[in-house]
């Protein structure tokens, strides 16, 4: 089966500590607006990285590039040792097609700010149908695993509800379970609590915290929850205008930032 084939090289790369993400000279512009320019970024397998910075600084664009929702204008992206948009033939890089990218980004999962659950499906269907489609599981097994995942994010009693019957926090937890169902090696979280009412933020962060502590999945978390980032991240990246201006452990970056922009940004966000 497909999953078994895939899991073999995964273990090998994880034990070698090879970066699961390697971006080199990545440029992305939307029309005249340059979002990223000459970005180099490595993320090691298993790392929990928080991406912070003012809006428009390119954090979300990085996540969208990694899951293939947008293509870079220039530069290369490697995921788990494979070029996302290129194939290397005899040492030279060639532009690869959509099918190649689909296959390379298969090990990446993403959770969105607006949940993007399928509104016409129940929570359970939202989780088990992608598992059937992508992992080629039989329906009973997919359903069983989906139930277990939903229980794990605390939604065991709500499996048969539609998104409209769930609170924002519950919807976001369904979305997390839906992504986890595909067994990603790299999970991208794009401001997953920004659309939530303040009292619902905690339950979603709780799930993220648990994932960070209990799995060896690589996590890239774009967030404005600085204290949360400091708490669970191994590494914090501060972005400003498409560049990494700060990169290090949360203690160093958040307590003693070197860059004036970081200080300014942290002050603004902590005084909210």
């Amino acid at each position: 089966m497909g999953i078994v084939d895939r899991s073999e090289p995964m273990k090998a790369t994880a034990s070698q500590g090879r970066p699961i993400v390697r971006m080199r000279g990545v440029r992305k512009a939307f029309g005249p607006r340059v979002i990223l320019e000459g970005l180099d970024l490595d993320v090691g397998a298993g790392e929990k990285v928080a991406l912070i910075g003012p809006s428009g600084s390119g954090k979300t664009t990085i996540l969208r590039l990694l899951i293939g929702l947008t293509e870079p204008d220039a530069g290369t992206i490697e995921i788990d040792g494979q070029y996302l948009w290129h194939s290397s033939r005899g040492g030279t890089l060639e532009r690869a097609d959509e099918a190649h990218a689909r296959q390379v980004r298969r090990c990446v999962g993403m959770v969105f700010q607006q949940f993007n659950l399928f509104p016409h499906m129940t929570a359970l269907q939202n989780v088990h149908e992608p598992m059937e489609q992508v992992l080629r599981l039989k329906r009973p097994e997919a359903k069983e695993r989906a139930r277990a995942l939903l229980a794990r994010v605390g939604l065991g009693e709500h499996v048969d509800k539609r998104p409209s019957q769930l609170s924002g926090g519950q919807q976001q937890r369904v979305a997390i379970a839906r992504s986890l169902g595909l067994q990603p090696k790299l999970m991208l979280f794009d401001e997953v609590t920004s659309a939530l009412d303040p009292e619902l933020v905690g339950e979603v962060l709780g799930v993220l915290r648990e994932l960070a502590h209990e799995t060896d999945m690589t996590m890239l978390i774009v967030t404005h929850e600085i204290r949360f980032a400091a708490d669970i991240a191994d590494r914090v990246l501060v972005f400003d205008a498409g560049r990494v201006v700060e990169d290090g452990s949360p203690e160093i970056v958040l307590k003693d930032p070197s860059h004036p922009r970081t200080r300014q940004f942290l002050r603004a966000i902590l005084e909210r």
Binding site: R106, F112, P130
Partner: peptide, 25 residues
């Protein structure tokens, strides 16, 4: 757009996305 983006992010096949996500909506 979010529905299509979710479908891409979940690596769902194109025909499934049309039949099961776009069409019912």
């Amino acid at each position: 757009a979010g529905q299509r983006e979710a479908a891409v992010a979940l690596h769902l096949p194109r025909f499934y996305t049309f039949r099961r996500i776009v069409l019912p909506q």
